[in-house]
Design a protein around this nucleic acid. Structure first.
Lengths: 197, 197, 197, 197
DNA sequence: TCGTAAGCGAGACGGTACGTCCCGTCTTTGA
DNA sequence: TCAAAGACGGGACGTACCGTCTCGCTTACGA
């Protein structure tokens, strides 16, 4: 069969060990301060085995994201018919998950990585897009149900929500209930005083 | 005068050269890949002169931010009486400034720095807060004028706006007019379909 | 036939290719800097094929010597009845052969190998002994013919000659006619002034 | 004064530690198998400190020789008036010194180094020449005293003696009294049978 | 006006990590 | 059943920076 090359196959055990060690380093140390030597040692792997598959530390982190070792997509709860409640639930579960210190520091590390490297940014974007997509889908259903305005820029909304949440994590402010409630209120009702019109 | 110690004074020329070189390195290379050796050479300064004043690269970056070498506060245009127009103008000028590639990459670098280091984050936060404060002030005036709802969480709104804009920069998407318009519409009117009520 | 094992026989083609590649590497790079990887590639052979037969690089070099890829024994010319002339001829032909740069560098490489490794030294010794043996044989004939003193330590003489020649090669001095003539004179007549006795 | 450069001076303590560690490694492991990492660790020195002063391991070994860490010149005993006895004494003390295993293995290592590297060979030659020079001087005195033939190629004699001794060390044969006596006899009297003339 | 106490540029120091080469071993595929 | 191809864990390479430590020199205060 074509594509079958001679020689030993890539060790999936090593690959998994490398990605796990990378995630742990990333959580503990951040993106800069990441050390390939340390990852190799922690994974019980030769450095060359890392460099054979990843030309740079950014590619390694990118594969880590791609393989799902870092970003855990937030699943949308079932459609209750009430868009606002569903979106609020989604945001609340995102917020809850971010409250563990390790999740927050991992998020910061990966954000730093994405900020500094195009390849990581692309993979991160892909993965975050999947997360956003669940939001977008629910929003679009809301539009179809007539609960939301027809011309709603659903992806802009999704990005704004994610952006706001990420910003709070970056600046080390907690995603507390007050913030979440205000964010939901803002997204749905806006800030204009309609009674005065 | 009290506090006057003998010996040579700190050279302001060197300080400025160091901060400029740091900003340039940050723009060109990002936060990791930042090299004190290279900064010292570029600034024509001994390494010890850097270490004398900054205990770590994060403190150096922090001072860089503090001295205004990195974050240029977006100034609020005069109050026209129309909150929405004023806020839109502010966002548009923020967006415009971010369109230069060097500004965007500097923003990403500093965001990475803030994501990875508490000290940088604190200084960054201070500086961004100043920027946000102009937004907050204008929003509060809008509330006072009865144009915005009384219970508007103005700082949450400001954070959401800044978060959304930063997220676009981080993910290397352009801050184009379509996005800005949708963001403004979202912030002011929300997404709920009121006609169906 | 006894000793016949199942499976493919050792490939003599591969063996020859390996030994040739080893000799070439040795000539070009010396004993340290010798790379099994490079030899395998040059010989068009898998590394395992080398390791199957040679437990270490010194054994490989030893076999290289044993198989005559490196030391070419200097043949004694026919016995003319004049020992001094015959020995001088032998030394001269040894010297001539050493004048090619590649032969000299190969000699240096193999001397380094012998200096550092017992196994190589043993094989080298064996091979050089064969060369010395031609000298010893001729010297002994000279003793028998009464041309040389009865108690001559023929092997010491042979070693001294070879040692002196090797030393010149090691120190990168040419084996020119002046040196050869002085060496022959020294060996045969010594340095004592007999007239003064 | 010219030549005074700014910056910290070279540490002579480190230099000495490096050269000592190099000599020890050379004795224990030989020239190939020499590891800069190991030398640095043994010397309690950063690797860069070695590479700052020595572009390659051969230059390091060369400086080791130059600084007298390896070759201990064999001193000529006082002139007794009897050349043969004096030379024999010199050879015997050379032989004695070579009988310690560590001296022999160091000699082999340095010979290997000289065989493989021009720079080492040059420095080694310089140092050995100093040793040979004591021989040459004594021989010349013998010529002047009329004990040796007028046209004796003294440096060829010295080289032959050293070459023969080195060859015995290289081939791991002991420099025993039999060999030494035969060598002295050979050098002084030659092998020609004069009675038959 | 002089000594003394910083600050300065330069650059060597003991180290850590880099990314590469090679070691000797171990699969895997094809002949 | 062997041999090439090539991945594996590991060690050393030579380089780049780290943060610290002298150097010789330049300021600038206070005695």
């Amino acid at each position: 069969m074509a594509g079958d090359r001679p020689g030993r196959k890539r060790s999936e055990v090593s690959r998994a060990a490398i990605l796990e060690a990378t995630r742990d380093e990333l959580t503990a140390e951040g993106y800069d301060r990441l050390s390939i030597d340390r990852i190799a040692t922690a994974a019980g792997v030769g450095k060359q085995t890392i460099y054979r598959w990843y030309p740079s530390k950014s590619e390694l982190v990118a594969d880590c994201i791609l393989a799902g070792y870092i970003v855990r997509p937030v699943i949308m709860t079932p459609d209750t018919g009430d868009v606002r409640r569903d979106i609020a639930t989604w945001i609340r579960s995102f917020a809850k998950e971010s409250r563990t210190p390790s999740a927050a520091s991992l998020t910061r590390a990966i954000t730093a990585a994405a900020a500094e490297d195009n390849a990581v940014a692309a993979h991160y974007q892909d993965q975050v897009t999947i997360t956003q997509e669940t939001l977008v889908t629910r929003l679009r259903a809301g539009v179809d149900a007539g609960q939301l305005q027809k011309d709603t820029g659903v992806s802009t909304v999704a990005e704004t929500v994610v952006g706001a949440l990420l910003y709070r994590i970056l600046t080390r402010q907690e995603l507390d209930d007050v913030f979440v409630d205000e964010l939901v209120e803002l997204i749905f009702s806006g800030i204009v005083n309609r009674e005065e019109r």
